[in-house]
Design a protein around this nucleic acid. Structure first.
Lengths: 250, 250
DNA sequence: CGTTAAATTGAGATCTTTCAACTACGGTGG
DNA sequence: CCACCGTAGTTGAAAGATCTCAATTTAACG
């Protein structure tokens, strides 16, 4: 959607009752292990919507009953500090799930918003708890989802919050590059880069401009393309090697 | 342990086969929902050990079969960047669990090390998978554990990786204060504070010294005590309010 | 009382933010 | 069709924050 301007959606559109059984990304989603009969529409009141970019899905602290699965597009989960600054703590791509915490909590733990035009399925948390009872195998998927959220959170700490701004930006570009192979399909504003890396918008802009001057990347149609992956990998390590040893043998 | 020098342990000591049934912190641990009979020693080969401070438990990427529950003390989970810098991504206090990722992974995702003398139970991951089969209720606990790890990870992003170093340090002090009410039982080196906040050791030291000069806290017997919580809460918000609006109605 | 690791401090070099001005671009309405 | 806006991006300059390196000081321990 995001990359197809002809198909731009400008308002929230109900795309109908989801047919999980024939869903083209079913293999990557929560229900991948479940048999077809578990997903018959009667037992799974799941709706699909098309959201324009920058559509808020839910605010932190709010009570909720809906879990969201991304089919297309990009979602951000963020938190807001008392001083009003926002910090993005997770990016969700197709196949990822937002709001899983409702299974154990009762309120959302982040603000959620689309970054691109997105196609998203809403799953009532009750559906999950019900399916859980009938299909214990679902638990495996839940645990796996949770773990991958955790891994993503860890990446935000070690990759995007550690070292110089240049190093962090290089890591962000490489991470996104990995997801979308080489070119960066995902459109992200400088402001959002700043919110991911914990820098000001201007710093994010300066660093990108800097990388462009160094021929490490170029931008075309609002899309960033990596030219020199090696150099970026150099920059991501920047600062001189620490001499602190590791207590773990080899 | 950590606070009782007379009882200091200087090497790894086997404290015997754990008796989970009578464990004094059983209510806070993974097994809190399980009936006594599930925890008979025959079915749960769980050992308790006493580890001196700075004992490595496992390195990232390593294959493993042991999950660790903290009974006393403090553990850190950290990752090491290619340039050798380490970043602490989680602190584990009594009742917390390290290595849960083995349920879905096969290798550990962090380096784990005790920060204080600690008493820790080792649980073979197979015990969990076996118990899981017999006592589905265990899943609830697992999900809850995972979620609280996630919450802790998010705190590391928003609280400890966002804003000025002063603000981040204030948040760290307040967080630790909350855990240990007012005084900071946990002994943490300046270097570790730096590894948590993503600053240099010297900066961590300077900020603490600064706070001392401002009478916001004092240190006695290697223990930090908060004097002026209000002022710290002021500092944690520092920087001027952002004007960026929120798209979420009140 | 010496030894060692941790903590502190100073000073200069660097990095990052802030504030403000300016540019580029895509609508929108006349 | 074009002038006008508003948003996003860019850039400069100065202030401020943080890092680095090096020198001291402090504290703990045998």
């Amino acid at each position: 959607m995001a990359t197809d301007p002809k198909n731009k959606c400008t308002e929230i559109i109900w795309k109908g009752r989801a047919s999980c059984i024939t869903c083209e990304i079913r293999k990557q989603v929560l229900f991948s292990d479940l048999p077809d009969e578990a997903l018959r529409p009667i037992v799974t009141p799941i709706d699909t919507y098309c959201y324009p970019e920058k559509t808020p899905l839910y605010p932190a602290e709010a009570e909720g009953q809906l879990i969201y699965t991304v089919r297309k597009g990009l979602l951000k989960l963020y938190q807001i500090l008392p001083n009003g600054k926002q910090r993005i703590v997770r990016l969700l791509k197709p196949g990822d799930v937002a709001g899983l915490e409702l299974i154990v909590s009762s309120h959302y733990h982040h603000f959620a918003m689309t970054m691109h035009d997105s196609e998203i399925c809403q799953i009532p948390v009750k559906v999950l708890t019900r399916l859980q009872a009938d299909y214990p195998i679902l638990y495996r998927q839940l645990l796996a989802r949770w773990q991958s959220s955790l891994d993503e959170a860890d990446r935000f700490i070690t990759l995007f919050s550690t070292g110089s701004a240049h190093a962090r930006m290089a890591r962000l570009l490489l991470q996104m590059g990995i997801r979308e192979n080489a070119s960066w399909g995902a459109r992200i504003t400088r402001e959002e880069m700043g919110d991911i890396l914990g820098t000001s918008t201007e710093t994010a802009s300066r660093i990108i401009a800097d990388f462009k001057r160094q021929q490490l990347l170029y931008e075309k149609n609002n899309t960033i393309h990596i030219l020199d992956k090696n150099q970026l990998q150099q920059i991501e390590q920047d600062e001189k090697k620490s001499l602190r040893g590791t207590p773990f043998p080899r």
